[in-house]
Design a protein around this nucleic acid. Structure first.
Lengths: 313, 313
DNA sequence: AGTAGATATACTCACAATGAGTATAAGAGT
DNA sequence: ACTCTTATACTCATTGTGAGTATATCTACT
């Protein structure tokens, strides 16, 4: 059996949130696809990396000078010809994608923090429905519906569009990132690593492209992170030791891309036992807020502690 | 860079449920570890398998004569020396584990269906608390608690044990399969592929062992499947076209390992729009039950359709 | 000093979802 | 007719959730 043509690459979606803006670490790899941004990635060093995690942490440290805290495996991609070099006789590339959360934005050489939503602008609906949806996506969806070949097909398309983008009665579901991405991809609104086309897709109106399928990986990571929020308090990996409830709320809102009701959010985190007050308070503008700290014990007390996503639109 | 010593193996937890008993497909690989059962696995054929999924389906068909329906990637394992042959200078092995669901139990050569819970007996609590918990696990947990080195350590251990096995006030959480597995592993109750030890672990009281880390993979699959039930109606992959509500309920119970309230279950699936009645009825014992069919449309109507796991113990 | 602006925190209320239970219906077999 | 068994309908208390009102406590400005 042929085992001699496989290369294993570890790719990472490294997330930090600063100024209420989720950012991911990107590289401009000038050797491929012009100057498109890409996710940082490194080959697994079979000889030295004892585990995949360690390999990942190693090259992130080497490449970007960052020590990541929380790391989670996302998915392994292995389609043939996914990597263009395979066509030229290069080895079959297997990519293992990871999600990593870092507490503070550290400087790094060669790499740059880039707003996550710049690649997926329809996912940020904190200021009401994102502009792209009304301006680009909705029209494209309408013409896609009109091109349905039968009544049944039309209904199917309408339902698919409805559930993905929360159109009719269906609520917007923050977790359905991948469904939205794939629908848009099918509609031709994602010019994935292909610079030749334009037309309806002008000037990154539907988001900036990335190298290869890195934008899909970025979408996968967003979906996973949003889903995880509801049953695991991973956000605290992104926060300093103490914080106000508003800081926490803004962070959660930044990640799920929608606004939350302030009083209910407070009720949720307090009754959920997720945080505990330190006596101290912080001042910033209005009435000083109590500084809270994450209660690690909650992981051992409650079945699935987290922040419920808004169920209804 | 050395890319010449990697082999990619696809491993599958293939699940079918017959007679309300979840079973997984196992092989007795006589060439390693005596005659321990193992998960079916096959190498990725770099030259011919266009995608990982296709490769998986290919060798499952070749090896066991089964065409699997639903397939989902679980996790990629790549620790060095995970595979014993690596010590002898063999290639670094990367295992990509999958969960597969098949509708009917088909015969197969060499492979055999084996009750899932025989490997993880503490996960089946349909008939009240599983015997192993009271007889083996609880005593082991108690002595583990007594060995705590400090008060704080004791409290930590107690909380960890409590949340894993739902001891004090904490409810039993069906999804925490991996936490339970890892706690038991740490306690030495899992004689993973090591046949030399015994003592407290006599005659598979704490479950049958498997080859390598296959039992952990089986646990990972169970955790994933249970978690997925709550927001994706994957169970219908395991059912025939039409079924009674009791059949459906028994199936869900079999998978999550606990009993459910019949009337509320009915309310859940009907109001949740998961099923629709066909006019027909089935008779078996008592009053004939209506035959239902899965409503695929629900996937496009509701945000996260599924069967809620019992929240409180 | 007083007031506007800003944020924090407390409390209320309607309604949906959930756990648990009672009551009744419709078949098979004796 | 009666028992056994399963199906289905309905009730009730409790909890969780979305949404809103009211009040408190700070800063900055006039």
């Amino acid at each position: 059996m042929d085992t001699s043509h496989i290369e294993v690459v570890l790719e990472a979606v490294i997330v930090a949130v600063t100024d209420n803006e989720p950012r991911i670490l990107t590289l401009r790899s000038s050797n491929q696809d012009g100057a498109l941004p890409g996710l940082p990635s490194g080959a697994l060093d079979v000889a030295h990396d004892r585990t995949l995690d360690r390999g990942l942490r190693r090259w992130i440290r080497e490449q970007a000078g960052i020590d990541v805290g929380y790391v989670e495996q996302l998915y392994t991609f292995g389609d043939r010809y996914r990597h263009p070099a395979e066509r030229g006789g290069g080895p079959r590339v297997l990519s293992i994608a990871y999600l990593a959360l870092v507490r503070e934005e550290q400087p790094s050489t060669g790499a740059a923090w880039w707003p996550w939503y710049q690649f997926l602008p329809w996912e940020d609906n904190r200021e009401g429905e994102a502009g792209v949806i009304a301006e680009v996506i909705a029209p494209a969806l309408r013409s896609w519906l009109d091109q349905a070949e039968s009544d049944a097909d039309h209904r199917l398309r309408a339902e698919r569009a409805g559930v993905a983008f929360g159109l009719d009665e269906t609520p917007w579901d923050p977790v359905r990132v991948l469904e939205r991405y794939e629908l848009l991809y099918q509609l031709g609104l994602i010019n994935e690593a292909r610079l030749e086309d334009s037309g309806a897709v002008s000037a990154g109106l539907s988001g900036d492209p990335m190298v290869l399928d890195h934008r899909r990986i970025a979408a996968t990571a967003l979906a996973r992170l949003r889903g995880k929020l509801s049953y695991r308090p991973v956000v605290f990996e992104l926060l300093p030791e103490t914080f106000t409830l508003l800081t926490l709320q803004k962070l959660v809102e930044a990640l799920i891309g929608v606004r939350l009701h302030k009083q209910n959010f407070r009720r949720l985190v307090e009754r959920g036992g997720l945080v505990e007050g330190t006596g101290r308070r912080s001042r910033s503008g209005g009435r000083p807020a109590e500084l809270y700290r994450f209660r690690r014990e909650v992981l051992l007390e409650r079945p699935r502690p987290g922040f419920g996503l808004p169920a209804r639109g």
